[in-house]
Design a protein around this nucleic acid. Structure first.
Lengths: 241, 241
DNA sequence: CTTGTAAACTTGTATAACAAGTTTGTATGT
DNA sequence: ACATACAAACTTGTTATACAAGTTTACAAG
C-alpha cells in the first residue's frame, strides 16, 4: 500500500488554505472509502502532495480531530474515527454556557428523543443490554444516599437505552446531553425533598427497565413520558428557566 | 477592557499541550461569561500567558473553530460563536460516509424530532415564520418540474419549522441532517413515479403549512407523521438499507 | 470635526530544528 | 527456522523565527 497521489483539487474560491485542506482530506476519505481505523497519509506526505506547509496540514488535522472525524496520537499516523458524541457534547455545553440554550430546552429534546429510544430499546434490546439497563436502575436505588453515584447510574441508564435502540444517532444525541445533564441533575435531586419522592423517581426507572426486559414498548413509552413530565415539572418548580 | 491575567491552570495529567490549551480556553470563556461576538485574547497574548508557543494556541483555536465554539478570520481576533449546525453536519455526513449511520436511521431520527417541531411550531410560530413555512411549501409545487429547486424548498421548509419551534437544539439537529438529506432526496423523488405521487407529497407539505398557519398542532403532527411514514416507505421500497 | 494615512496589531503561512513516540528491518543468538 | 533485541527510519508534538496580508488605532492634515 504505497503512497498514491492525491488527485483532488483545491477549491479556488475558498478563503484560507487550512479550510481548503480540510476539504481535500474529507474528499480523500470519501474517495478512498476509508473506514474507522484506516490510516491517513502522514502530515509530511500530505503537505508535499498538496504543496502546503506542514503547519497547514497539522491545523487541518486538528480541526478534523476536534469534530472527531479522525484520531490523532503521538508518533502514529492519523486514523479514521468511530462515531462519538464528544464534539457534540462540547457544542451543547457551549450553547448552555453562553445562554443560547436553556436547560429546559435540553429536557424537551431529551424527552422527545428518549420516548422514542425507550420504545425502540424495548423492541430491539439484546439480553445483555436489558440486563445492563436494569442494573443501572437498581444501582440508583442502591445508592439513594450517594447522589453522585446515583446520578452516574441515572445517566448510564438513559445512555444504555439509547444504545439499545440500535440507532447510533440517538446514542450520540443522548450522549451529548450527558455533560449538561450532569450539571443540572442536582437541582432535580435537591428539589425532591418530600417523603418518598426520590424513591418514586428511582422506582420509575426500575419500572421502565422492567418494561424493556419484558419487551413492552407501550408501557416503557408511557413510563418514560411520565418520568420526563415529572422531571421537567420539578425543574420548573425550582425556578429554572 | 485591557488584558487581564488568565488564572486558570493547566490540568497536569492531560496528555498534549493543545488539549490542555483547549481546556484552558473553554474554562476562560466560562469564567469570563463570554457571549457570542465577544473577543478572545490574541494568539500571542494567550501563548505568552500560558507559556506555550503560538503554534499550540493556534491549533487549539482551530479545534475550537472546528466545533464552532469560536469564529476565526484573518487579522481579527477570535470571537465567541453563535450556535450553528456546521460541525454536527460534518459529523453526521462522516457517519453516513463511513457507513456507521444508515439513511433510514437518519429518517427515523428526523421523524422523531420533526413530529415534535411541527407541534411546537404550530403553537409558537410568529406570523413571519408561518408565512415563510407556507411559502416554501408553495414553492415546492411551483417547481415540481425543477427537482433541485423543489428540494431546496423542501429542506428549507423543514428547517424553518424547526426554527419556529423556538428550541435551537431542534434547529441544530434538523439543520445537521440537511447535507445527508440532500444526498438521498433524489432517491425519494425518483421513486415517486406514479401519477400524482409527487403532487400528493407536496400537497402534504402545503397541508402541514396550513395547519401551522391555523395553529392546529394535532393536525400538523398527524400530517407530519404521515409524511414521514410515506417517505420512509418510499426509501425502503427503493431498496435502501 | 472629518478624513486620510501610517503605525501597530493580529492572523495566515512557510521553514527549520529538535524532542518524543512508533514502526520497521536487520542482526544476533538459540 | 524462529524469536528477540536493538538500531534506524518514520511520525507526531512543540518551539522559534520570519514575513505576508488583513484589521484596528492613533494621529496629523485639511
Amino acid at each position: 500500500m504505497d503512497q498514491d497521489t492525491i488527485q483532488i483539487e483545491f477549491k479556488k474560491d475558498s478563503t484560507d488554505l487550512v479550510s481548503k485542506t480540510i476539504g481535500v482530506i474529507t474528499q480523500y476519505i470519501r474517495k478512498e472509502a476509508l473506514s474507522p481505523g484506516d490510516k491517513l497519509p502522514s502530515e509530511l506526505n500530505l503537505a508535499k502532495e498538496l504543496k502546503v506547509s506542514r503547519t497547514v496540514v497539522r491545523e487541518a488535522f486538528r480541526s478534523l480531530a476536534a469534530i472527531r472525524l479522525i484520531n490523532l496520537s503521538a508518533g502514529k499516523r492519523a486514523t479514521i474515527a468511530h462515531l462519538d458524541h464528544g464534539a457534540m457534547s462540547l457544542m451543547i455545553e457551549h450553547g448552555v454556557l453562553t445562554e443560547q440554550i436553556s436547560v429546559q430546552q435540553i429536557y424537551d429534546v431529551r424527552r422527545t428523543i428518549e420516548v422514542r429510544t425507550v420504545t425502540l430499546a424495548s423492541l430491539r434490546r439484546s439480553e445483555a443490554e436489558a440486563k445492563s439497563i436494569r442494573y443501572h436502575a437498581m444501582q440508583m436505588m442502591e445508592h439513594i444516599n450517594a447522589p453522585d453515584k446515583a446520578m452516574e447510574h441515572d445517566l448510564a441508564f438513559h445512555f444504555e437505552i439509547a444504545k439499545a435502540s440500535k440507532n447510533p444517532v440517538f446514542a450520540i444525541i443522548v450522549g451529548a446531553f450527558q455533560g449538561v445533564s450532569r450539571q443540572s441533575w442536582s437541582i432535580g435531586w435537591r428539589n425532591r425533598t418530600q417523603h418518598g419522592q426520590r424513591e418514586e423517581m428511582i422506582q420509575t426507572h426500575i419500572d421502565i427497565a422492567d418494561a424493556i426486559v419484558l419487551g413492552d414498548p407501550l408501557k416503557a413509552n408511557e413510563l418514560m413520558s411520565a418520568h420526563f413530565d415529572d422531571s421537567i415539572k420539578v425543574l420548573i418548580d425550582a425556578g429554572l428557566v
